[in-house]
Design a protein around this nucleic acid. Structure first.
Lengths: 344, 344
DNA sequence: TTGTAGGCGTTATCAA
DNA sequence: TTGATAACGCCTACAA
């Protein structure tokens, strides 16, 4: 069966192709009668316009794309939902696109901009270690949302919405210290990490220092390489190792809730009681942290506001071509059942 | 800055556009030297071919799409990963596309086929209640993977990979019965549900009957409408209601692990002990079921094999144009810590 | 091995 | 309000 095109429809309706095009795109100057007539024929024959052809011709698609790094983060799902609503309110279309861990998000973005004639881009999650030259290739406004960046980026000119990972990490570790914990194990990223792993680890160090607790390197554990990072599985494996090593500690700070939950499981299996024997803290504030038993003490990012602000900032860039903005949100320390005062 | 096209590259290289095209697409008949020369210029000027133009022209893209219904199911993430590898092995490109709950996946598919010249499609998850006519509009081979369908589909001709939701549901409820439970609450889908909800509920009924337990309608609870379905939140809310109602029961069968976990939280908050006071069973076998404490007794679908088989079946359809195949996999009853014998 | 020209399906321009 | 026609950027006969 041949693919039916706009020409076929035009012929069937006895009109020109441009008229059909106008009918499809709700152009102002078209006779309503002819439009309904055309639309009827279109429906009857199940004609569907070819997007590639359209994208080729179009100059401004009124579409914005969200590029999500890493497919599986439950944390992003909520953000996407909120963003979607906001974008819809602005009468823009949304192109949701997942970027593999090994893919370069900026390359993907550049390609997508060309292909879909995007008006803007939201980069969601992941790390960012691109050169300034590379970022400059992005021809449309973009916002980095909840993306961790290394120091050097501070001089770049870009828009972003995020939390201060160092400060928030400090906050929760400081809380553990305030409960009297002095031997706080941390489960963090690999040493090469240049992203949230590094930042949250930094917060850990600062909190220890501020509380006059001398740093003990043997309390620092890293996610294992042979398992996916930031998973319960990984946290479980690491904590199993810790228990075997006979390490002495009274609290655990995992840099993600998933890791924390995995660690809890391992602790419980070893017969430890949470929080009586060991306090456990995470980071992110995912639903699971609240439903887990015991609920996990964690840092919750204001997902909804951040998502809204991301879209807001992007549209400001698109519509007003204003300078870039960087917004930092404060996260909330959520005290759950997984932490308590350290034993004397 | 103007967008650079293949013509510009051709001009810069002092060759024809077709030569550039051949260089890009690794065509056999091109002088290796000219090719490397061209590729260098391309890299230097950051030329990126426009996909829309390409898609418009080509007939077969050697790409297959996975259409995932519902954005947030952790269960699918693993399947996608496996499928991705398999597809890559076949040297095909993968187009991952999320379908909103309110969108019609078949419409999306039809559009995507035209736009991207797909060679095949995998529908992942969700329900399926399309007419035969509609499905026939799909011009390329497709496989329904882990998709629940109503009875009437049995006569249709399509390929699918799934588990027998009725039988597996029966299996786990039968297990509860074998532990001596007679008052088994079920948390299931809405009454209008025509999908896994209905099928798993059916399994529940059959198991009761087979165990000579008379059906008690007051033990059947439905997910609340004002919360997202199949979430921990929802299971929690429902169980809260159940506890308030003073309902008498010794076991709970939630038709998803997420619901089960939410229910557990509510039970624990009410001071119930799991499994001593109440046994809890779920369905799906997500990671969380194992890491939860107590671990949840559940039905685990053989994710990996199913994902592989899905791709296999699809390629068989693409390459050999063989008739459609329907594969049903057996799932595994995973006994966790959340169930035990009913009190006498 | 390479270049020229035509067409993929659509929208935008311009004239009617 | 309409219709013819020229792009959009690429691939692919076909000719050289």
């Amino acid at each position: 069966m041949e693919n039916i095109t706009i020409k076929d429809i035009a012929r069937m309706c006895g009109v020109g192709v441009s008229t059909v095009s106008r009918a499809i795109n709700n152009h102002p100057d078209i006779n309503p009668e002819t439009q309904t007539m055309i639309m009827e024929i279109i429906r009857e024959y199940d004609y569907i316009p070819n997007n590639s052809a359209r994208n080729l011709k179009i100059t401004d698609s009124k579409a914005i794309a969200i590029l999500v790094k890493g497919i599986s983060n439950p944390f992003f799902m909520k953000m996407i939902k909120v963003m979607e609503d906001e974008i819809q309110k602005k009468k823009y279309a949304l192109v949701l696109h997942h970027v593999e861990d090994r893919e370069d998000e900026v390359d993907v973005a550049i390609e997508l901009i060309k292909e879909k004639r995007l008006s803007g881009i939201i980069f969601l999650g992941g790390f960012f270690s691109h050169t300034k030259e590379k970022l400059d290739k992005l021809q449309v406004p973009y916002v980095l949302s909840t993306i961790a960046m290394t120091q050097k980026y501070s001089e770049y000119d870009y828009s972003s919405v995020s939390v201060d990972d160092v400060a928030e990490s400090y906050k929760i570790v400081d809380y553990l210290c305030s409960l009297g914990h002095k031997k706080i194990v941390t489960i963090t990223a690999n040493v090469e990490d240049e992203s949230i792993g590094k930042l949250r680890y930094e917060g850990y160090l600062k909190a220890l220092e501020a509380n006059n607790i001398s740093f003990n390197e043997s309390l620092v554990y890293h996610m294992t390489d042979h398992l996916d990072p930031y998973t319960m599985e990984n946290g479980y494996a690491v904590m199993k190792d810790i228990m075997e090593s006979g390490q002495d500690f009274t609290a655990v700070y995992a840099i993600s809730d998933t890791l924390a939950i995995g660690a809890c499981k391992a602790l419980l299996e070893s017969g430890k009681k949470i929080p009586e024997d060991v306090s456990v803290a995470g980071f992110d504030g995912i639903d699971m942290a609240f439903f887990y038993s015991p609920s996990i003490t964690t840092i919750r990012q204001p997902i909804e506001e951040m998502a809204k602000e991301t879209v807001q900032v992007l549209f400001k860039c698109i519509e007003e071509k204003t300078a870039n903005e960087r917004k930092t949100f404060e996260a909330l320390l959520c005290i759950g059942e997984s932490t308590c005062e350290a034993k004397k």
